[in-house]
């Protein structure tokens, strides 16, 4: 990876600081993205967890939605976790009627599909290509209810996909940024490197 590669972290709301810290531990530059000018300087983007309703609204008011949609369509690598996965999905159940998503991954998701905070949990999951288990933290997590034929499943929980990817887009329903283990972020950096 080039030392000059810049990974943006969408910082309108949510766990952006934890993602930036993970990326910096892996030796790459992580810049917060809040306005279109920030996005223009990035080679790839992480979309963090948080509230997807808040983020989709701020994407509109910050005039980031359309430029970001274009960058994703042009092949910029993107990694979304939790709310970030919801924003990358094609269909959203239990979202707000006016909520827009990027349809960057051919999956449908159910918001808070794993339940409210009382149902949040942590568990060990097997990730394709990892030699040992990954500690996955699920917080009011979305559930993938449909997965398109071109989408690769990298990890499952209870038989359901929780880490998926296409050629340039990866999404997790759990929170690798809370794990003290940066292997999933490294997986994304490998995609950025191509």
């Amino acid at each position: 990876m080039s030392a000059r590669t810049r990974i943006g972290v969408l910082a309108l709301q949510g766990a952006f600081a934890a993602h930036a810290a993970a990326l910096q531990r892996l030796g790459v530059r992580a810049d917060e993205v809040r306005v279109p000018g920030d996005l223009a300087e990035c080679d790839a983007l992480v979309m963090p967890g948080g509230e997807s309703t808040t983020m989709s609204q701020l994407l509109e008011t910050s005039e980031l939605f359309d430029p970001l949609a274009k960058r994703i369509a042009d092949g910029m690598p993107v990694f979304g976790t939790c709310a970030g996965m919801i924003l990358l999905s094609t269909g959203i159940a239990d979202g707000r009627p006016d909520q827009r998503s990027f349809a960057a991954l051919d999956i449908d998701v159910q918001r808070n599909g794993f339940g409210r905070q009382l149902d949040s949990f942590e568990t060990e999951i097997a990730v394709q290509g990892f030699d040992r288990a990954f500690h996955a933290v699920f917080i009011r997590a979305p559930r993938i209810s449909r997965i398109g034929s071109g989408i690769e499943t990298l990890a499952t929980y209870g038989g359901e996909p929780v880490l998926v990817r296409s050629k340039t887009v990866m999404a997790a329903s759990f929170h690798p940024e809370l794990a003290d283990d940066d292997r999933v972020h490294q997986l994304f950096l490998n995609m950025v490197q191509g």
Partner: peptide, 15 residues
């Protein structure tokens, strides 16, 4: 604890 503090992380940058 990680699950509890994790929700706090998700609430950052908001109202």
């Amino acid at each position: 604890m990680r699950v509890q503090r994790g929700l706090s992380e998700m609430l950052k940058g908001g109202v």
